[in-house]
Lab assay of single mutants.
Amino acid sequence: THFTSQQLQELEATFQRNHYPDMSTREEIAVWTNLTEARVRVWFKNRRAKWR
């Protein structure tokens, strides 16, 4: 999946605040970024792996 810079900005900003967002937070992010909750969940999983 290719993310727009706007989507990445929103995802990264949320990641800085919370590395493990809950389901409702992921659903909110999905609405803001026009992505599915599953895409958001996978992005956070991959981002945490990169962060370690």
Rank of each mutant, 00 (worst) to 15 (best):
T1Q: 11
T1N: 12
T1I: 11
T1M: 13
T1R: 12
T1A: 12
T1K: 13
T1Y: 13
T1E: 12
H2N: 10
H2G: 13
H2W: 12
H2P: 11
H2V: 11
H2M: 11
H2A: 11
F3A: 03
F3G: 01
F3C: 05
F3Q: 02
F3Y: 12
F3P: 05
F3T: 04
F3W: 07
T4K: 04
T4A: 04
T4N: 07
T4Q: 03
T4D: 05
T4W: 05
T4L: 05
T4Y: 05
T4P: 03
S5W: 14
S5V: 13
S5G: 08
Q6R: 11
Q6D: 10
Q6H: 11
Q6N: 09
Q6P: 05
Q6V: 10
Q7N: 04
Q7F: 04
Q7D: 03
Q7V: 08
L8W: 11
L8S: 06
L8Q: 08
L8H: 07
L8N: 06
L8I: 11
L8K: 07
L8P: 00
L8G: 02
Q9A: 13
Q9W: 12
Q9T: 10
Q9M: 14
Q9Y: 12
E10H: 15
E10T: 15
E10Y: 15
E10Q: 15
E10D: 12
E10G: 08
L11D: 02
L11P: 01
L11H: 01
L11M: 05
L11T: 00
L11R: 00
L11Y: 01
L11S: 01
E12F: 04
E12H: 03
E12K: 02
A13S: 11
A13P: 01
A13I: 10
A13C: 13
T14M: 15
T14I: 15
T14L: 15
T14N: 15
T14F: 15
T14A: 15
F15V: 02
F15M: 00
F15P: 01
F15I: 00
F15H: 01
F15W: 07
F15Q: 01
Q16N: 08
Q16S: 09
Q16K: 10
Q16C: 10
Q16I: 09
Q16F: 07
Q16E: 09
Q16M: 10
R17Q: 10
R17P: 01
R17F: 09
R17K: 13
R17E: 07
R17W: 10
R17T: 09
N18T: 09
N18F: 06
N18K: 04
N18C: 14
N18P: 00
N18G: 05
N18M: 08
N18V: 07
H19E: 03
H19D: 02
H19Q: 11
H19M: 13
H19P: 12
H19C: 09
Y20V: 04
Y20N: 06
Y20I: 02
Y20T: 05
Y20M: 05
Y20W: 12
P21I: 03
P21Q: 02
P21N: 01
P21K: 01
P21G: 03
D22F: 02
D22C: 05
D22Y: 03
D22R: 06
M23C: 07
M23G: 06
M23E: 08
M23D: 05
M23A: 09
M23F: 14
S24K: 15
S24T: 12
S24I: 11
T25L: 11
T25E: 13
T25K: 09
T25P: 00
R26A: 03
R26P: 02
R26Y: 08
R26L: 09
R26F: 07
R26H: 01
R26E: 02
E27I: 15
E27A: 12
E27D: 06
E27G: 06
E27K: 15
E27V: 13
E28T: 10
E28V: 10
E28L: 14
E28S: 10
E28D: 09
I29H: 00
I29M: 04
I29A: 01
I29E: 01
I29Y: 03
I29S: 00
A30W: 04
A30T: 03
A30K: 02
A30L: 02
A30P: 01
A30R: 01
V31D: 08
V31H: 13
V31W: 08
V31G: 10
V31E: 13
V31Y: 13
V31N: 12
V31L: 14
V31C: 14
V31Q: 13
W32M: 15
W32Y: 13
W32A: 15
W32D: 09
T33I: 13
T33D: 02
T33Q: 06
T33G: 04
T33F: 14
N34I: 05
N34F: 06
N34W: 04
N34L: 06
N34Y: 06
L35M: 10
L35D: 02
L35R: 02
L35S: 13
L35Q: 07
L35I: 06
L35T: 13
L35V: 07
T36N: 05
T36I: 05
T36R: 02
T36M: 03
T36F: 04
T36W: 04
E37R: 03
E37H: 04
E37T: 05
E37C: 05
E37Y: 03
A38N: 09
A38C: 09
A38R: 12
A38P: 11
A38L: 14
A38V: 10
A38Q: 11
R39K: 14
R39M: 15
R39L: 15
R39V: 15
R39P: 01
R39F: 11
V40C: 02
V40F: 01
V40K: 00
V40L: 03
V40D: 00
V40S: 00
V40E: 00
R41K: 08
R41E: 06
R41C: 07
R41T: 06
R41P: 00
R41G: 05
R41W: 06
R41S: 08
V42D: 12
V42T: 13
V42Q: 14
V42A: 14
W43L: 00
W43E: 01
W43N: 00
W43H: 00
W43D: 00
W43M: 00
W43T: 00
F44A: 00
F44H: 00
F44W: 03
F44E: 00
F44I: 01
F44V: 00
F44T: 00
F44S: 00
F44N: 00
K45E: 09
K45M: 11
K45L: 08
K45H: 10
N46V: 13
N46L: 13
N46H: 12
R47T: 02
R47H: 02
R47D: 01
R47C: 04
R47I: 02
R47L: 04
R47N: 01
R47M: 05
R47W: 04
R48F: 04
R48G: 01
R48N: 04
R48I: 06
R48Q: 05
R48D: 01
R48M: 05
R48L: 07
R48Y: 04
R48E: 03
A49K: 14
A49D: 08
A49T: 07
A49V: 08
A49P: 02
A49R: 15
K50A: 13
K50I: 13
K50Y: 08
K50Q: 13
K50R: 13
K50W: 08
K50G: 07
K50D: 08
K50P: 03
K50V: 12
W51T: 06
W51I: 07
W51Q: 08
W51F: 10
R52C: 10
R52P: 05
R52M: 10
R52G: 07
R52E: 08
R52F: 12
R52K: 11
R52S: 08
R52Q: 10
